[in-house]
Design a protein around this nucleic acid. Structure first.
Length: 269
DNA sequence: ATGGTAGAGCATCTA
């Protein structure tokens, strides 16, 4: 990209340790300036800081065990790192949020709880977590500054974002309450970067179940989002979902993919 | 129209 732009990406890697071979190849090829990772599945003391510093990046990780775990990786500066919500919130121990200031942009990296099923307590916890996120994001004052909130939201914002709305009836990720929670985030002064570029294009998915050949059948959803504050959104040059990074499943010679593809955005400085 | 996969880690649990 041109000298005057910043490349920001988000990727749920489904275990950083398992994904290192593919991640290295992808970072060398893509050259992100800021990369948000979810589901590192690592405790902080097991985080491979040297892997990233060798590639020229600083990191802020928030993880405490074999589940969840989020990180911000940056080569345009990484300051004011902040882990988790400020106050006690359900799920606060689950290491699902990390924030840092990178190259003048406030970056909030999130891994929203899955919710499992609508009738489960985990679904209620998901809604509570999204509510806490709303308060947290409001505190970053997105209406007046360069803020990005990105990551795995485990919510498909509209029916355009799923391969078949009928298939997901009664399931999590598509309920009015979850979609309302995302809409309320946007109301703070954020834009859904990819949807802004492609307002009516279906099939732009970021996640496909590993099973049943769903990736090759196009049976996915768009749940990995980059929400950009308006000052940033008006400088977006392009947004893409890198499906190439989702290929190779089951191959003996290709590095194995996550079930998520990275979402990448180029922004003028 | 989930459960055929994958990753945690060693029996299942989570997604």
């Amino acid at each position: 990209m041109s000298e005057g732009s910043v490349r920001l990406a988000t990727w749920n890697v489904n275990s950083l340790k398992a994904r290192l071979p593919l991640l290295e190849r992808w970072m060398v090829g893509t050259q992100p300036d800021v990369l948000c990772l979810q589901e590192t599945k690592l405790a902080d003391d097991a985080f491979p800081t040297g892997f990233f510093s060798d590639l020229g990046y600083e990191v802020a990780h928030h993880g405490n065990g074999p589940w969840n775990g989020v990180a911000i990786v940056s080569r345009v500066g990484l300051e004011e790192a902040d882990r988790g919500f400020a106050d006690d919130v359900a799920g606060e121990a689950e290491t699902r949020l990390v924030r840092a200031r990178c190259g003048g942009i406030t970056v909030v990296c999130v891994y929203v709880p899955n919710g499992r099923s609508v009738d489960s307590e985990h679904y209620q916890a998901k809604l509570a977590w999204l509510d806490a996120l709303h308060g947290y994001v409001a505190g970053t004052r997105p209406a007046g500054s360069d803020v990005v909130v990105c990551g795995d939201f485990n919510v498909a914002p509209s029916d355009l974002d799923v391969f078949d709305p009928a298939f997901f009836e009664g399931a999590t990720h598509v309920t009015p309450a979850e979609r309302e929670a995302v809409a309320r985030l946007l109301d703070l002064g954020l834009e859904d970067a990819l949807r802004m570029q492609y307002p009516e294009t279906g099939g732009l998915f970021s996640w496909w179940d590993y099973r049943a050949g769903n990736f090759h059948k196009g049976r996915g959803m768009r749940i990995d989002l980059i929400l950009a504050s308006r000052s940033l959104a008006e400088r977006i040059e392009w947004v893409l979902i890198d499906r190439n990074a989702r290929r190779g499943q089951g191959s003996k010679t290709e590095p194995q993919p996550s079930d998520h593809a990275p979402v990448v955005m180029g922004v003028r400085k």
